[in-house]
């Protein structure tokens, strides 16, 4: 019995320790201001690897998700003779929830794991330490540009996801199932507000971008420096990111619906 309480306490302490460590790590990273010039070049490279290379998976997934919503929505709405409302259903569910959440989940799987594995490998092969020995700060040189790249890319990817999904729904609803294009678009336009729907979705994806990239670079930086350590850090990135995304989505949604 005592053992179990002890183990629980130990686990609790370990979690607190990790949270504290990751907080300090984040603070130190953010405190490294990007030096203009070279810093911008590093950031641009990372936006390419983190953001641009995630484009394909985001685009393809968004098309399919939009198409599925189109089909499902049409079949349900049709029963009430309300298939004209498909545009509204599609746009609201995508901009409010699916856009930010699915983008973040895909981003964690595509870019988050890549970041963790890359940084973890640098840790395991002493590259980070050798950088420190050459008097170059790895937090500035490696971590900071990757962190900001993730933070900047996520909302942009989410917007692209939104467009892709809406286009996918349009293909199925209008082109295939024959809903009137005019009512599809005008219903959508009437139902979606910029502030409540689009902006709130963007705020969500900013938060997700922050958290997912934070988890990814933290897991990479503090990898146990061997092959097993890298693989477990990569797994943790996906698991923790997904849980964080879904839990934060609930919190943010409830805050947004209650008007903060």
């Amino acid at each position: 019995m005592i053992d179990k309480i002890q183990a629980l306490g130990h686990a609790g302490l370990t979690i607190c320790q990790h949270l504290g460590l990751s907080g300090i790590f984040l603070f130190k990273t953010l405190a490294r201001r990007p030096r203009p010039g070279e810093g911008f070049k590093l950031l641009r490279e990372q936006i390419y690897t983190v953001g641009v290379l995630s484009l394909l998976i985001i685009l393809v997934s968004s098309l399919f998700i939009g198409m599925v919503i189109g089909l499902q929505g049409y079949n349900t709405l049709q029963r009430f003779g309300a298939e004209q409302e498909l545009g509204q259903l599609l746009a609201l569910s995508v901009t409010r929830e699916l856009g930010p959440v699915v983008t973040a989940l895909l981003f964690a799987g595509r870019a988050g794991t890549a970041l963790t594995a890359e940084i973890g490998l640098m840790r395991a092969t002493d590259q980070l330490e050798s950088m420190e020995m050459m008097a170059v700060d790895p937090l500035w040189r490696i971590i900071s540009p990757r962190f900001w790249a993730g933070f900047i890319s996520m909302p942009l990817l989410a917007m692209i996801f939104n467009m892709g999904a809406i286009y996918g729904g349009y293909l199925v609803g209008v082109q295939w199932l024959g809903i009137d294009a005019g009512s599809f678009w005008s219903n959508m336009q009437a139902a979606v507000t910029f502030r409540m729907d689009v902006m709130n979705g963007l705020i969500k994806s900013l938060v997700f971008g922050f958290v997912v990239t934070w988890i990814a670079v933290y897991q990479g930086y503090f990898t146990v420096p061997n092959a097993a350590g890298i693989s477990s850090a990569t797994t943790k990135t996906v698991v923790y990111s997904s849980l964080a995304i879904l839990a934060l989505d609930f919190v943010l949604t409830s805050m947004m619906l209650k008007g903060w």
């Binding site: 490998l121 640098m122 092969t125 002493d126 590259q127 330490e129 050798s130 020995m133």
Partner: peptide, 12 residues
């Protein structure tokens, strides 16, 4: 100070 790491630690 220059340091040569056991693994070389070149940037891959």
């Amino acid at each position: 100070i220059g340091m040569l790491f056991q693994s070389g630690a070149l940037f891959t």
